[in-house]
């Protein structure tokens, strides 16, 4: 921060009081915030393209574009994750996703096609941000549920069978997501 200030002063002294380029103006903190995503994105591209040198002709601009988009988003709150709970969630979720796929496939190929679709609303106790996004995405892969809208705390869920016990299915999911982010289960958490 200090060195940038010095640079500005230097420009002013030289009598060229024009606006410096945005990159120079970018606070160092913001640059540091982009370092980690830059490394992650570069590694993802590298793995996808087998680390071929010529692939960076496309990968380089793509990574830069993604980083620029990231600067347009509001800074996300940092969440602490419990690794063990995350692992347990991944295992449980994989089983649920298989259950969900088998359920919808059987409905699709069954001659009777048992469907009783409808919308239901669910009030989530998870705080805004990553936990709520994770809930909405996970709901769509659970058996018979699809997240259709999030408005604040309210989640609109489409059900293949509107007699599904929402409280049991989503409640369990919420508790597991809360555990992943070290949140007190079933309680309102201020964002």
């Amino acid at each position: 921060m200090k060195s940038f200030q010095a640079l500005d002063d230097g420009l002013a002294v030289a009598g060229q009081h024009r606006k410096p380029a945005p990159l120079v103006r970018m606070p160092r903190q913001r640059l540091r915030r982009l370092t980690f995503p830059a490394v992650i994105l570069a590694v993802i591209w590298g793995v996808l393209a087998d680390w071929r040198l010529e692939s960076w002709l496309f990968g380089g601009p793509a990574v830069l574009l993604a980083l620029w988009l990231l600067t347009l988003l509001p800074p996300a709150r940092r969440w602490t994750m419990a690794p063990l709970a995350a692992l347990r969630f991944a295992g449980w979720f994989a089983v649920q996703a298989v259950r969900g796929a088998v359920d919808v496939s059987l409905r699709a190929v069954s001659p009777r096609m048992p469907l009783n679709p409808g919308f239901r609303s669910w009030r989530t106790t998870l705080p805004e941000g990553t936990p709520r996004i994770m809930l909405a995405n996970a709901v769509s892969l659970l058996p018979g549920t699809l997240s259709a809208e999030i408005e604040g705390q309210r989640l609109v869920i489409h059900l293949l069978d509107c007699h599904t016990d929402l409280a049991a299915e989503i409640g369990r999911l919420e508790a597991r997501i809360a555990a992943v982010f070290n949140l007190p289960a079933g309680k309102e958490t201020a964002a």
Binding site: V104, A108, P143
Partner: peptide, 22 residues
């Protein structure tokens, strides 16, 4: 099965279930 669901299910929301999950 997902494609069968896409063709047979009555509305867009049910079809989305088939596509995302299966």
């Amino acid at each position: 099965a997902g494609t069968v669901g896409l063709l047979r299910f009555p509305d867009l929301y049910c079809q989305l279930h088939a596509l995302t999950k299966a």
